[in-house]
Every structure is written in structure tokens, then in C-alpha cells.
Amino acid sequence: MRMIYLSPVPWASFSQRPHHFVDWYHHRTGATVLWIDPYPTRLPTLDDFRRKPPVANPQNTNAPAWLRVCKPHSLPIEPLPGSALVLKRLWRNLFREVMAFSAEKPCMMCIAKPSELALQLLARIPASRAVYDAMDDFPAFYQGLSRRSMARRQTQLIQRVDKVLASSSPLRDKLLGMTDQIELALNACDMQRLAPVESLDLGPKQQVIGYVGTLGHWFDWDLVIALAQANPGNRIKLIGPLFTPPRRVLPANIELLPECAHAGAIAAMATFSVGLIPFKLNRLTASVDPIKYYEYRALGLPVLTTRFGEMALRDKEPGVWIVDEDTDLRKAATDALASRSDRSAIQQFREAHRWAVRFSSINLTGCALETPQAP
């Protein structure tokens, strides 16, 4: 059964959950996938004009033979009343391409972000099975009219699909109020991009506590500064785009480094002694299962993390130190830095948390996953 996949990220971006999902689906079915790149689903903000473009990563510039990429024409007006009338005119060619694709053979649809386009396609292909892969609490990323618009479209989407996949336990529990056709499908890690287990440096290294990722408004600067002050003999290395700068002078042992391509980020992680996930506790982080966790642990790193999202449920997992308000930051860092990972345990973790393993465990009844079909 062919697939139409509405992605929240462009095909040309570095490989993320959507890329691994369609790759898994193709290799399980042999079917062709029509990938639809995202378009703006909120009104623009001043920050959009201040941000630098992301570091280029050309790994997905070429699509495989079994995948077609569509780029919708659009304007950043979706939350405005009446915008659908304008957008539908811009999408006429896309509608024709999708209808031709779905007319050739039976087709299912996977929607990885709520949008007016997704609702329009569901209405045009009512006979297709449809899945909503809820990767995040999407309304939490927006404000005002854009948030209300996204919440409304997500509710409409959930009412129209056959199944919802939730990327974290808290998100599943939240969406259970809208549907009982929901299944947990946690995040995972692209193990092929990591160095072989036998080549990992599992010794003490330089006792660096490190973070790789965006430093946005969810990043807990107060915690990181307190951690640095409690452990003046250790370096804290922060790598990524700085969207929300700290409001005070940083201790000398905090090092800020610019964003790098994904391969460079993974290489940088391998030099850490401890992986850090210092996220604030708010609506945005409450539904998150951070891929950083899987990358850190797959590299043999212990993890220092706040009690947010799926991480709140990992306080008994090996190699995880949860940091709360009353945590002794000196002791937590010392204990994490002193811990050592076993190569066989790392290999077992990698095998258990591959994307293909994750997706193979979900039940997409009626989607012909057992026998590959010709594209």
C-alpha cells in the first residue's frame, strides 16, 4: 500500500523521525512514498527575521527512487479566518499530483503535523487509511491566534484519522481525551550514524559535561549556571544555536560553541563525559521524549536531566540522574562523571532503540506491512 506522508520537516533536512518512518515503511512494504514538505502553519514573528539560517546539511538533498518530494506553494496566513480559500488555490497543482498518486494504487496517509492541507487531503481521499504521528504537542510551540488555530486543526485531524501514534507517554495520556485509538511510539536513534561501540572512549576523558541542541526559551539557564558554580573544576560545553541568551554573566567554566552539522554534533557528543538535558518544566517540554537521551546513552554517556516529559519516567533507568530543585548538584555531577558504561550494555541499548525496532512494534492494522508490494 502506497503512502502519502505529510512531514513537519523538509526532506532535505538531516534525518529525523519522519525520514526513518518512511524508510522503515518502504522496506517493510516495498511501496512508493509521496513525501510532502511542510509549509508555514503559523503567523510570522519578529524572531523569524532575526534568526540565522540553520547550518547546511546536504545528506538528504537527493531522494531515493521509491520516494517523490512535493513542496507546497503557500503563504504564512493559515491561522487567519478565510485563509483556506487562498491556500486551496495555491495547492491546486499539489492536489492534482496527490490525487493521481492515490488513484494508481491503494494508498494510506500519514500526517506528522496538523495542517489545513492535511485536512483538505483527508477530505479528498476519504477511502484511504490515515494515521496521525503526533511527534510533539504542536499547539504548545505557538502563541495567540496561531496556537488556537493549531489546536483546532489537531482536534479535527484526530477525529478523522484511524489511529494516532504518540511520541511520549505524557502526550499519549493527553490525547487520550480526544481518541482511544492511540498507541505509544517513542523516539529512537539513528545508530548507523554513530561510531562503532568498540571504538568509543569510555574512560574518564576530560570530565566535560556537554549539551548539543537549540538553546531556546525552554533551556534552563539558571540550572546550568548553578551546575557550573557547584562544579567549578568541570567544563560545561554548550553547542547549538543561541535563541535565548542568558540574562547574567556566565561562569568561566561554561563554554558556548556555535551550531554545527549533525555529524559534527554526534562527534562532539562522543567527547563528553556526561550528557546534559537542562529543560524547563513547562507545557512545551511536558510532552517531549528527547532524541538527545538516546544519542547520549547510545554513545555510553551518563545523562543529567531535569524531570520533564518522558525523562520524568526514567529516574530508575541506568545511567540517568534526575535533577530537581533540591538536588545536590555537586554530588549529582560527581556521581554521573564517576559512572562507567559497559560496551555490551551499550550494544544492547542500541539494538533496542533503533528506529526500525520502534516502528515495527506499532500496529497499523490493514496497512499491508507483512508482504512487500511492488511500488
Rank of each mutant, 00 (worst) to 15 (best):
residue 6 L to S: 06
residue 298 A to Y: 07
residue 363 N to V: 08
residue 1 M to T: 13
residue 147 R to T: 08
residue 158 I to C: 07
residue 250 L to E: 06
residue 228 A to N: 00
residue 208 V to C: 09
residue 15 S to R: 15
residue 276 L to E: 04
residue 125 I to A: 02
residue 168 S to A: 15
residue 191 M to H: 09
residue 41 T to C: 09
residue 118 A to H: 02
residue 356 A to W: 05
residue 48 D to M: 07
residue 21 F to G: 00
residue 155 T to M: 02
residue 21 F to A: 01
residue 245 P to K: 08
residue 278 P to T: 08
residue 177 G to F: 04
residue 205 K to E: 08
residue 185 A to T: 13
residue 16 Q to L: 10
residue 142 Y to D: 10
residue 46 L to I: 07
residue 209 I to D: 04
residue 39 Y to H: 12
residue 334 T to I: 04
residue 95 F to I: 00
residue 153 R to P: 01
residue 343 R to T: 12
residue 47 D to I: 05
residue 298 A to Q: 07
residue 233 G to D: 13
residue 160 R to C: 03
residue 273 S to G: 11
residue 342 D to N: 15
residue 146 S to R: 01
residue 131 V to C: 09
residue 243 F to E: 14
residue 311 M to K: 14
residue 14 F to S: 12
residue 88 K to D: 11
residue 295 E to Y: 02
residue 33 V to S: 00
residue 165 L to Y: 10
residue 116 E to C: 02
residue 110 C to L: 07
residue 250 L to V: 10
residue 108 M to D: 10
residue 58 P to M: 02
residue 301 L to K: 11
residue 99 M to E: 13
residue 140 A to T: 14
residue 257 L to H: 13
residue 247 R to W: 03
residue 359 F to M: 00
residue 357 V to Q: 15
residue 310 E to P: 15
residue 65 A to L: 04
residue 339 S to R: 08
residue 277 I to E: 04
residue 146 S to L: 05
residue 89 R to W: 05
residue 285 T to M: 07
residue 140 A to Y: 10
residue 215 L to S: 02
residue 4 I to G: 00
residue 163 K to C: 07
residue 350 R to T: 01
residue 236 I to H: 02
residue 14 F to H: 09
residue 269 M to S: 07
residue 326 D to W: 03
residue 149 S to F: 01
residue 155 T to R: 14
residue 285 T to K: 06
residue 283 R to F: 02
residue 20 H to I: 03
residue 120 Q to Y: 00
residue 277 I to S: 04
residue 10 P to A: 10
residue 194 L to V: 04
residue 102 S to I: 00
residue 223 L to P: 02
residue 24 W to K: 04
residue 247 R to I: 03
residue 233 G to T: 08
residue 93 N to D: 11
residue 11 W to G: 03
residue 63 A to H: 03
residue 292 K to R: 15
residue 58 P to Y: 02
residue 28 R to N: 12
residue 249 V to A: 13
residue 61 T to K: 11
residue 125 I to W: 05
residue 20 H to F: 11
residue 25 Y to H: 10
